[in-house]
Amino acid sequence: MIRVLVVDDEALVRSGLRLILEAAGDISVIGEARDGAEAVSAVGRLRPEVVLMDVRMPVMDGLTAAGRILLDPQAPKVIMLTTFDVDEYVHAALRLGAVGFLLKDTPPRELAAAVRTVADGQAMLSPSVTKRVIAQYADRAPSRAEAARRQLDGLTGREGDVIKALARGLSNAEIGRELRLTEATVKAHVSRVLAKLGLANRVQAAILVHDADLH
């Protein structure tokens, strides 16, 4: 069972998310929190594998809570929840190490699939949603773009191809088809690229490519 903590200031939303996730059969909601402060405490106490975290909450917002939770090397995967398809706070959360975000009206099957995806160690990079946030809110000041390009200069040509495809929201299988590589080879390239760049996940790699304006 995948252990999930649900964090939202609205009891009705928490109840709805619990019902959807537990109906999946392989997901267990082990706890709920009403704000970021409760979430930080609950993560330390319950040790969930995945946290579904609302962005905007009283007492402590989701961004602040995600930043604190993700400082722990053994931190759970954090998915941000939002009512809006573009939210400036989400981009900051991705930079902190959140693996992506979902709209609160995400269909039940997609919500459960997203939890499974991140629990399996993969980041969610939805071309239709996450990339819009990256594109709209990435700070592309010349100094940042130059620094990002310098960081990417250390990659080989093939690694550069892989990270650019990754930034477009392609899965390992899709990248493999495009670059004529096996999925296992793509996975190895992705792991090597993340290690070289000192990045936590695919979402941070995509942000770096957007910062460099190379997408």
Results as ranks from 00 to 15, higher is better:
Leu111Tyr: 00
Pro58Met: 08
Tyr89Arg: 12
Leu194Ala: 01
Ala112Cys: 09
Pro108Glu: 14
Gly97Cys: 03
Arg158His: 04
Gly44Ala: 04
Val190His: 09
Lys196Tyr: 06
Lys196Trp: 05
Glu178Phe: 15
Gln74Ser: 13
Lys164Ala: 11
Glu38Phe: 06
Ala206Cys: 11
Ser191Asp: 15
Ile69Ala: 02
Val29Glu: 02
Gln74Phe: 03
Arg68Gly: 07
Glu183Tyr: 13
Arg140Val: 15
Asp9Trp: 11
Val50His: 06
Leu46Cys: 04
Leu96Ala: 11
Ala173Phe: 13
Gln122His: 13
Gly16Arg: 12
Ala11Trp: 04
Val186Gly: 10
Asp26Ile: 03
Leu170Glu: 03
Val51His: 05
Ala33Leu: 04
Thr130Leu: 14
Met53His: 01
Leu63Tyr: 05
Asp72His: 09
Ala184Gly: 09
Pro48Tyr: 03
Gly62Trp: 00
Glu110Tyr: 00
Pro58Thr: 03
Val4Phe: 03
Gly16Gln: 10
Ser28Asp: 15
Leu52Glu: 04
His210Lys: 12
Leu102Asn: 07
Glu146Leu: 10
Val186Asn: 08
Pro142Met: 06
Val209Trp: 05
Gly198Arg: 09
Thr83Gly: 15
Glu110Gly: 12
Thr182Asp: 01
Glu174Thr: 05
Arg14Met: 07
Pro73Leu: 08
Arg132Thr: 11
Pro107Phe: 10
Val133Tyr: 15
Arg192Leu: 05
Ser15Gln: 14
Ala65Tyr: 00
Ala113His: 05
His189Trp: 05
Gly198Asp: 11
Lys131Leu: 15
Val203Trp: 03
Ala24Leu: 07
Asp85Trp: 05
Ser191Thr: 13
